[in-house]
Amino acid sequence: MNTADTAPVILRDVTLRDGLQLTGKLLSTERKVAVVRELIRLGVPEIELGSMARADLVPPMANTLEVAAALTEQELERCWVWVATPGHVAKAAAAGLRNFQYCLSASDQHNQANIGRSTEASLAALPEAVRYTQQVNGKIQLCLATSFTCPFDGPVPEERILAIANDPRAAGTCDIVICDTLGQAYPAQVGSLISRVRAETPARRIVYHGHDTWGLGVANTLAAIASGAAVVDGALGGLGGCPFAPGASGNTSTEDILFATRPNWLNPQVFAALVQLSESLLGELGEPNRSKSAQGARSKAQAFEWVINSAQSPACEPSL
């Protein structure tokens, strides 16, 4: 049984992986490195750096290893990389990465579309991925995409998630990531599944990964936190989506999650810098900004300290 985590909830920014998957424009290695360093400078605890997915299938991920090579060992300690096979882990580890997010889908059809194999085949390969991770003293997460609904199979039963979470082949994973890949879940549903994972599966950190397709991204994130999630994922400006999940749209916004949860490292000046970073990045990519908090920060309510003009501080301006 998992025990309650009394530490403050941790935000992991997934802009550079899940956020970029559907963008038409690509970011250079230098730009990605600058984004990582700015997020770290501003206090973001964890970052999803990129993916080992095939570059011909997900072109924005092509320079993930180049980004890793440009970062210091201390910077990489804050970064995670998406992997789907033991070979991915070995290749990423050779590039200096030590934190791996091993992803498979709870639904077979999505796993076939996303990874090219059955869910069972992905599970069968997990122990080898864990061994590679242990050889480099790394950490590996069990990441379950389509934990609530599948674009091909429909609703995913909670028992399916619990069965995978309790599978002995997942031994050695440090975290379990519960993903609302399509953004179709609702708060009571999220709370129920997270609570059951916490109570009925091996003790490990619970990560919630949500999308805002139906407008419930922040509400679902808060429900996950209330039910035991220790880490929650977000992307700047609500950027992102899965290229192999019809109907999926952007991630829950990093800015919206932070404005709602108010971690102790966040203040109006840091928030302003995050909004400016987001605006700059989305402008380069030609993508809309879906963050309601970022929109609020640009309002004319000057008496509110979180509005940009009243919060702006030169010390916290992005260095990009």
Rank of each mutant, 00 (worst) to 15 (best):
H209E: 07
A170N: 13
F152N: 02
W214G: 04
V218M: 05
E128P: 07
A224D: 07
P155H: 13
D153I: 06
A165N: 05
V197D: 02
T221E: 07
E128R: 12
G191S: 12
L126C: 07
A224N: 07
T221S: 13
V177H: 11
E158M: 14
D180W: 13
A129E: 00
L142T: 00
C179N: 14
A188D: 15
R131M: 08
A165W: 02
A170G: 13
F148C: 03
P202H: 10
A203Q: 14
V130W: 04
R169N: 12
R131W: 08
T146H: 11
R198A: 00
C179K: 12
R204E: 08
G210S: 08
R117N: 06
R131E: 15
A121P: 02
G172T: 06
Q184P: 03
P127Y: 09
Q135S: 05
A124L: 10
V130S: 02
A145N: 15
R198I: 01
H211P: 09
I140E: 00
L216M: 15
E128V: 09
D153K: 01
Q134L: 05
I206G: 05
T201E: 02
W214N: 10
T119D: 04
P168V: 14
G116C: 01
G154W: 09
S192A: 15
I115P: 00
V130P: 05
H209F: 11
S192D: 14
R160P: 08
I115V: 03
N166L: 06
A171T: 15
N166P: 10
K139A: 03
S192Q: 15
N166G: 07
I140H: 01
A199F: 08
A145C: 12
G138P: 04
T213F: 07
E200C: 06
D175K: 14
R205H: 09
R204N: 03
L193V: 15
P127M: 04
L222Q: 13
L144F: 09
S147Y: 05
E159W: 13
Q141E: 11
R169F: 13
R169I: 14
I164P: 04
V190E: 07
E120T: 04
Q112N: 06
L182I: 00
L162Q: 01
A223I: 07
C179G: 12
Q135M: 08
C174Q: 14
A199N: 13
G116F: 08
N137T: 12
G138T: 14
L162V: 10
I115R: 11
S147P: 06
G210C: 07
D167T: 13
R117I: 03
A170I: 15
A113Y: 09
N220P: 05
R169S: 13
A188R: 15
G217Q: 05
T213N: 01
S192V: 10
A219L: 09
R196L: 10
D153A: 05
P202Y: 10
A163L: 14
D167R: 03
I161E: 01
T201N: 00
F152R: 00
T133D: 05
T133P: 04
T146Y: 11
D153T: 13
C179R: 13
G191P: 04
I206F: 06
S147N: 04
S122P: 02
V177W: 11
Q184M: 12
Y132L: 01
V218K: 00
I225P: 08
